[in-house]
Amino acid sequence: MSGRLASYALRLSRLIDSANALLGRSVAWLSVLLVSLTCAVVVLRYAFGIGATATQELVMYAHALVFMGAAAWAVQRDAHVRVDIFFRRQNPRRQALTDLLGTLLLMLPMCLFLAWTCWDYVAVSWARGERSADAGGLPFVYLQKSIILLLVGSLLLQALSQIIKTLCVLTGHLSTHLQPDHAEAL
C-alpha cells in the first residue's frame, strides 16, 4: 500500500470511526431513558394500576437501539467480547493480522448474512406499515425492525475501517490499529 493511498484510506477510516463513535455515544444516552421509563412503568402499574403498553414498547425500542446502535462503536473501541488468552501478548503486527482475519472471516460474513436474511423482514414490515399487535401499543414496529439494518450498516462500515487500519499496520503505515484505553471516559 503506497503512502498516499494509506493516507486517504486512513482519512476514510477516521471518518467512519467518528460517525460510529457519534452514533454509539448518542444511543448510550438512551440508557438513562431506559431506566426512567422502566421506573415509570413499574410505578404506573403497581402504584396506580395503570398499564402502559406504549411505554413498555418504547423501552424495548430504546433497548434495541442501545445495543444495536452501539455495537460498531464497541468494535471500534475494542470493547466487544474477546477471548484474548494470546491476543494481548502478541506484538501489534500479529494483533493486526488476528483482527484482519477475524474481520474478514467472521464479522463480514456475519454482517452479510444478517443483511441478506433481514432485508425482506424489514421491507415487508415497512410495506405493511406494521403496527403493534397490542392495544395501546406503538404504531411503528417497522422502525424497530429497521434497527437491525442500522446494526448491519454500522458494523459493515466499522469492518471497512478495521480492514484499513490493520492493513496499514501490516504495511508499516501505523504502529497499532487499537485505540488507547478510553474506559475512564465512559
Rank of each mutant, 00 (worst) to 15 (best):
A79M: 08
A79D: 09
A79H: 05
A79L: 06
R82K: 04
V83Y: 05
D84R: 09
D84K: 07
I85T: 14
F86M: 15
F86D: 15
R88F: 13
R88E: 12
R89N: 10
R89G: 13
Q90F: 15
Q90V: 13
R93T: 12
R93Q: 13
Q95L: 11
A96C: 03
A96W: 04
A96E: 09
T98A: 14
T98Q: 12
L100V: 02
L100R: 01
L101A: 03
L101N: 01
L101Q: 01
L101T: 01
G102L: 00
T103G: 00
T103N: 03
T103K: 01
L104F: 04
L104G: 05
L105H: 02
L106R: 04
L106S: 08
L106P: 10
L108D: 05
P109E: 02
M110Y: 15
M110T: 15
C111T: 02
L112E: 05
F113W: 04
L114E: 06
L114H: 04
L114P: 02
A115V: 11
T117G: 14
T117R: 14
T117W: 14
D120G: 04
D120T: 06
V122Q: 00
A123I: 08
A123V: 09
V124W: 08
S125W: 06
S125T: 03
S125F: 04
W126K: 01
A127K: 10
R128C: 10
G129D: 10
